[in-house]
């Protein structure tokens, strides 16, 4: 284990519109394995929040358990964070959001955390359309418990343990869409150019914004035959194209550091299968989004980018008609009906 935070990264520390420099969005030194996809996602989160001008203390970062769920300690060090229990981040986020609707809620989870032990909480937080960003750092295995296959491991995928996974995999994006998620995207930890705008869009989105980020586990699941390895993902990515309200929208060009595990450049048409989606793909059409995911799956491609967006849905507060005021700011005067009302209530029980 070593710190994967590079020594220099910020040649200039220009503040953003909110007056914070990128340093204000960083966290503690990572203790994850060098090269772990999760660290790249942390960096993307730092960048996305910086670029989005969100004051760091206005963010609450909440996670479950796993290597992925440790990452909130490695970004946004000036935000409150909560490393909760395995698979239950969504319920903590729900309660927190109910208490104060005005913060930005960033949930971080792993594929074990979300697709297995937390599958129930995952689908139900989506059904509530809780206003939060839900990032899954998806490596197809349980990193922290040393590499067991997870429920997102594809059938036939082979991790370092050597045996092919025999079970059907769960596509978290498909489930999210089916559960009524209002923002669904898939990213790749190795493609920051795509991931940062996705996170920025998720920050702006009202409702549950699910981003399933393929994030290779270099220690246990980065074999050539693993469908969650850097190599595989780079060779099988297919982007949906970008969508309007991402300010940083630009052509998808993945730039990979030649020092990393596989030095493969994106946009190699013959191998990588990365191309824009067909003209008629409409990411606001739930059925078409599901079709696109299924089509990519048939071709053994990984569809990345924004997959489904329903821009103006109602979140939990709207659905339950909850006061516009922050519930955690209400005092006795707002909450307690007082003794004379209580005496009237007593009379109903006489």
């Amino acid at each position: 284990m070593s710190s994967s935070r590079p020594g220099f990264r910020h040649p200039d520390l220009a503040p953003n519109e909110a007056g914070y420099t990128i340093k204000d969005y960083e966290g503690g030194a990572s203790t994850l394995c060098a090269g772990c996809g999760h660290d790249s996602i942390s960096r993307a989160i730092v960048q996305a929040f910086f670029e989005s001008n969100v004051p760091p203390h206005q963010v609450a970062k909440i996670s479950g358990i796993g290597c992925s769920s440790k990452t909130p300690a490695y970004f946004l060090g000036k935000s409150h964070g909560f490393n909760s229990v395995h698979g239950r981040m969504p319920s903590i986020a729900t309660g927190a959001n109910m208490a104060n609707k005005d913060l930005v809620y960033l949930g971080v989870s792993g594929d074990g955390d979300t697709a297995s032990i937390g599958a129930g909480q995952f689908i139900h937080v989506i059904r509530r359309n809780l206003n939060m960003i839900y990032i899954i750092m998806n490596n197809g295995c349980y990193g922290l418990t040393k590499g067991q296959d997870s429920a997102t491991a594809d059938k036939g995928s082979i991790s370092r343990k050597g045996a092919p996974n025999l079970l059907e995999s769960i596509d978290l994006c498909e489930i999210a869409i089916q559960m009524g998620a209002s923002f669904v995207a898939r990213g790749f930890s190795g493609d920051k150019q795509q991931l940062i705008p996705l996170i920025k869009a998720a920050i702006r989105h009202k409702g549950t914004a699910v981003i399933d980020v393929i994030s290779p586990c270099v220690t246990f699941n980065n074999t050539p035959q693993s469908t969650k390895s850097y190599q595989w993902v780079r060779e099988h990515s297919e982007a949906t194209g970008t969508f309007d309200f991402i300010p940083l929208q630009q052509e998808i060009v993945a730039s990979y550091n030649p020092g990393e595990i596989a030095a493969i450049t994106l946009h190699d048409g013959s191998i990588i299968h990365l191309h824009k989606t067909a003209e008629d793909f409409d990411i606001t059409n739930r059925r078409k989004s599901l079709d696109a995911l299924e089509e990519a799956r048939e071709k053994h491609h990984i569809l990345t980018g924004a997959i489904y967006v329903k821009p103006d849905g109602q979140d939990t507060h709207d659905l339950l008609s909850i006061s516009d005021r922050k519930l955690n700011s209400l005092d006795k005067e707002d909450l307690c009906p007082g003794n004379s009302v209580l005496q009237d209530i007593n009379d109903q029980y006489r």
Binding site: V85, S91, I92, T94, G95, A99, N100, G120
Partner: peptide, 18 residues
């Protein structure tokens, strides 16, 4: 969705001051 979530909601809310 179940009691695990029910108490999780309570903990999240209390952590956040409600």
């Amino acid at each position: 969705e179940d009691e695990l979530a029910a108490i999780g909601i309570v903990i999240g809310a209390s952590w956040n001051g409600a």
